[in-house]
Every structure is written in C-alpha cells, then in structure tokens.
Design a protein around this nucleic acid. Sequence first.
DNA 1: ATTGTGGCCTGCCCGC
DNA 2: TGCGGGCAGGCCACAA
Length: 266
Amino acid sequence: MPELPEVEAYRRLAERALHRPVDRVQVGDPRFVRGGATPRAVSGLLQGRLLGAVTRIGKLLVFDVMEKGGDSGPARLGLRFGMTGRLLVDGAPGVDALLYSSDRADPAWDRFALHFTDGGALVVRDPRLLGGVHLDPDTAALGPDALSLTPAQLRFALDRSAAPLKARLMDQARIAGVGNLIADEVLWRAGLAPGRAAGSLTPAEQRRLLHHLRRTLGDLLERGGSHTGDLMPERIPGGRCPRDGVELCRDVVGGRTTWWCPAHQR
DNA sequence: ATTGTGGCCTGCCCGC
DNA sequence: TGCGGGCAGGCCACAA
C-alpha cells in the first residue's frame, strides 16, 4: 500500500508532469475532493495553468501551481493515495505492485486526472476512494518526514508518551510517512515490542529504532515498496519469525493489525 | 491536551 | 456455481 516508499516513487514519476500546460481537469468522483474544497474549485485552480514543483511530506504529495508566465498560482495542490491509490503519468504507473489494491485498469477508478495540452495526463487511480485531492493541503499538521528524521525529532515524538510505541510511529502529526507495514517491519528489526509505552524507550533503544527506521526505509525504497520487508511473508496466520522461528503474535495496536515476535521484540 | 474507537470506502477471498 | 461475510488500513471525526 502507499506508504513512504510508494509515494516517493510517485513523486519521482510526477516530475514528468511538471511544466506542461493543463488543458482539462477531470474529477471522476466528487467525493475524491477533500477538505471542504469543490470539484469546481480544483478545476479552476488547474485549468490553463501548470504544475511547477512537487514535494513529498510523508505520504502527501504537494504541487506548486504556476501561471504559464511563471508566476505562482493562487494555491497549491495536494494528493493523497490512501491504501489503494495509484499515480500514473502518461499511462506509466509509479509502482509496479500495490498490495491490497487491484491491478485492473478500470477507467471508473480514475478519480482525478489532469489532461495536458500535449495529450498526456496525470491520473490518480483509486478503487476505494481512500485517497483524495486537497487545495492548499495543511502541511503544518504533519510531523517531520521519516526519511530525514533526526535523533532529536524522534525523541520529541516519543518522550513522555504513554501511547503504544507503534501508534506514535504511525502518528502522521509526529512522524510523517510510516504506515502499518513499515511500522511492523521497523519494530521487528529493532527488537522492540509494538505495545511498549513510547516514552519508555531508553536512549540506546531510541538510537536502535532510528537506525532501523533509516535502514528499513532505505531498503524498501530500493526494493520498490512497503510490502517488500523481511517480515512481510510471515504476516499470515501461523507465520513465524524469520529471525528465530517462533510463531508470531497477531494483535491490534493503534487500531491496526500488528504482527510481532514475542521472543525477540521487547 | 492525550489516547482510543468507529466509520468511510469497496475489491477480493474464503467458506458454504 | 453464486452468494455473503469478513478483511484490508489511511485518514478523519468524535468521545472520554
């Protein structure tokens, strides 16, 4: 599903869509427009303008909008992908495989599209409508991006919290980009139990966590998806810890299905 | 403020 | 063979 690695791949793909005049804006489903905006407002923002730059904060893509003359447009455009959203530019997908989504190319799932005057298009295909389009997305509501997280930022995100460690890792307001699969993978690699109180980590454990967060994100970016972790094949009933062979526990932590090893995650 | 819960969305898979 | 229930989780609203 789209966590940080997929959305980073989308960002790179989206660079192909920059500086190309928008001829027509297609909102396939009005429910896909979020945050109180309207399809008309989104169309009005993009029509006749072009995308200037694209940045990623966690799982959010933010596009600068420009006038054809090069001046800044009146607002920025945000794209979210939920767990089933796919980005395509000129028909090419940002990622090959998307766990829990469908690989079919049903045109009814094209929830949002920018058709360029050159004939190409940027398309968000999302069977389940869990993603969305935002006008002037509230980036201040997101914590620092997980990929460039510093030790001080991790400490700030965890210290003095009674919430489960995994819930804090997935709290986009504190650390942006970590979703369910990556949280399980990182905690498994770091040997930390998902239900531990976030504020209970020692400085050494925080260092270990940050080390494995960076390593994991690097690995998954390279492998091409949040579903390519070493724990992933065992996140099934009867699955066993790839490290020591013990049967994994399946719990709900932070409201999400959590697979973890009771032997080495403490 | 912090933390937890339920709902939204719908394709897909399993069991009957 | 068709049908129905359960499941998946990012995000948001809401409750205590």
